[in-house]
């Protein structure tokens, strides 16, 4: 199987997010960057499929030079190859822009792919857009938020999470899949993997080479970025259990009016 897995470099989810003085972006200086958490499930699934069916796994990121670090991690986990589409623009929050770059890369460099694996959503942009957009641009089927995946020849079955249920979805390959937590347990890099990854060359393609200047213009205009409104702390009470229960119900009915 010819599998591509797409990974994004994002701030560590533990980060304290601060807004820049111009109010148009977040301050990136001093943040620790990692591979977006759901993307790790996508990498793991790609590796498992290759181990079961043979083939090749290529990890791809669209982002700055620093994204080479997360691509090295993918290689250390076991990806065969990696590729950086170098894009120096700061976060645009525009899924279509990224999807155009990915679709164009796949069309020109990997036209005979079987599966494109994504995380269900990137931390930061929190969009959940790129996988379905790439699928449409390439005119292939999609299954998003997948917790279980089976592939048999040119046919796939995926279970995707919906409200209070799972949908069993059948689809023909090639296809786009996005990973939800629960799909698998991502492996750790091995020392041997890390050493081998260091020696591998990672080709870099400037995004301008594969996407027209017009399509690189974000379709999202950032008006402002703000910290969340601080929530006022309420009351804390310490009462015997029975009275506490009565006070909760009284509060909910009389003050908060939610029951």
């Amino acid at each position: 199987m010819n599998i591509l897995v797409f990974v994004k470099r994002v701030p560590d989810t533990e980060s304290r997010i601060r807004v820049s003085p111009d109010g148009l972006r977040i301050v990136e200086e001093g943040l620790n960057f990692i591979i977006s958490p759901y993307d790790e499930y996508a990498v793991e699934e790609a590796l498992r499929l290759r181990e079961a069916k043979g083939g090749k796994v290529t990890a791809v990121s669209v982002g700055p030079e620093e994204a080479l670090l997360i691509l090295r991690k993918c290689l250390a986990m076991g990806a065969d190859e990696a590729l950086l589409v170098k894009d120096t623009s700061p976060e645009t929050f525009d899924g279509l822009r990224t999807a155009e770059a990915i679709a164009s890369l796949v069309r020109t460099k990997f036209p005979d792919f079987d599966l494109l694996l994504f995380g269900k959503q990137s931390f930061g942009a929190d969009n959940g857009q790129v996988p379905a957009m790439v699928a449409e641009l390439l005119q292939v089927p999609q299954v998003n938020v997948v917790v279980k995946l089976q592939v048999e020849g040119k046919q796939g079955v995926a279970f995707r999470e919906v409200e209070g249920a799972q949908e069993k979805v059948t689809f023909p390959l090639p296809a786009v899949i996005s990973a939800q937590k629960g799909l698998n347990e991502p492996r750790y890099e091995t020392l041997k993997g890390i050493m081998a990854a260091k020696r591998k060359e990672i080709p870099v393609i400037p995004v301008e080479e594969i996407v027209s200047a017009a399509k690189l213009q974000p379709g999202v205009e950032v008006v402002k970025v703000e910290p969340p409104a601080a929530k006022q702390a309420g009351r804390v009470i310490q009462l015997p259990p029975e009275e506490a229960a009565r006070e909760i119900v009284r509060f909910l009915r009389e003050e908060a009016k939610v029951l």
Partner: peptide
Amino acid sequence: IYAGKAFLT
């Protein structure tokens, strides 16, 4: 955005 640690207009 950023899991609710900021809001984007």
